[in-house]
Computed example of a mutant assay.
Amino acid sequence: MKKLPLVLTAVIGLTIFGCSQTKNEEKMISTISKEAFGELPDGQKADLYTLTNGNGMTVNITNYGGIITKLTAPDKKGEWTDVVLGFDSLQPYVSGHPFFGALVGRYGNRIAKGKFTLNGQDYKLAINNGPNALHGGIKGFDKVIWKATEVKEDSVVGLQLEYVSKDMEEGYPGTLTVKVTYTLDNDNALSINYNATTDKATVVNLTNHSYFNLTGLKRDILDHEVSIMSDSIVPVDANLIPTGKLRAVEGTPFDFRKPTKINAGINKIDDEQIKNGGGYDHCWVLKRTEPGLMLFATVKDPESGRFMEVFTTEPAVQFYTGNFLDGSLKGKNATFAKRFGLCLETEHYPDSPNQPQFPSTVLNPGDTYETTTKYRFSAK
């Protein structure tokens, strides 16, 4: 066989190596795309953004309510499957739903009797959950169109959403300028950064209300193994309003300091707190071991091997197990029955504006509200 000249051989080798390297680099490129998602009754148009990382993980987010409509995670076979409850079109979101995937504000969780006093001024909010105000009111941040800006970096892709909530919107004082940025990286982590400023003293407690089901929406979440780095919860009364005191989790169905299956304690209705919440619908006070972003919870589906880690800068998390889902809503070829999804809503404590002993949720002019939460996915 005729030998190629050494220089030509080197060039061919370099070319082959270069092509291979280019393919590997292309594999790690993150992308974002946009498409029309539908129209609201008032004529406003909603868009849907698809974030894809270099591993093939995808997250779909609409600028209507900042809703995460889809999020894929790998199983132990390396197959990617959607693991959040939601719908494939806009209309079911507009028609009404239990905050699937939504940005919640101006105040996530409950405020007792829909009222609070701030700097000597009384404020009344819309009552939309029994006798209480819940998740920002009748038209909270989950029901508005946000201004969207695409974010692109080398190995990170994201979406920045901005909304200006006017003074006294839903009864809350101050014009609040909010920026929420979703970013997806090649570590299979979705981060959510919340930023807000105000021109008048107000209360703020922003969160995301995604319902996760690591089975890939095949069955309920009762076999999920959950750990929460917390020694205490915020107990509630029959209306799910904090009693004002903390309760140690040791020796109770609320002890998730080690990975524990949800069904191990969720039906122990002889426990007053399980009875009041209809299962788990409580705020866990995080045992902070370091400042800043901290790992505080893990969730695993033993069958698929899907594993989720949750990090936050917040002091607490509302762990909710879909107790109020009743099978009346369907989407993505699944019926959303009771306990078909779980939420880990990072937050300050519920009803903090009426509980001075709780960490404050007051935001004053000149200050900046800023928190971050990250959900990272893998397989075990």
Rank of each mutant, 00 (worst) to 15 (best):
G216I: 07
V203S: 02
L222W: 10
P242D: 12
P173F: 08
R247H: 05
K143R: 14
K139A: 00
A133C: 14
L222N: 12
Y163C: 00
G171V: 02
K179H: 08
I127G: 00
T177D: 11
V151A: 04
N239S: 15
A248S: 13
L190H: 01
K258H: 07
L206T: 00
L190C: 00
G244Q: 06
I228Y: 07
G137V: 11
T252N: 08
D231R: 11
H224C: 08
V157Q: 03
D223N: 14
P173A: 09
H209E: 01
N239G: 11
K152G: 01
T197A: 01
L222F: 11
K143V: 02
L246V: 11
S230L: 09
R219L: 02
D223F: 07
A126M: 13
V156S: 02
V204K: 03
L206Q: 00
L206Y: 00
N119E: 15
D142R: 06
K258V: 10
T183E: 12
A196Q: 01
T215E: 07
I221V: 15
P242Y: 13
A189H: 06
Y194E: 00
V157E: 05
G244P: 04
L134R: 10
F256M: 04
F141Q: 10
P173R: 07
N208E: 01
V156H: 02
A126I: 11
K245S: 12
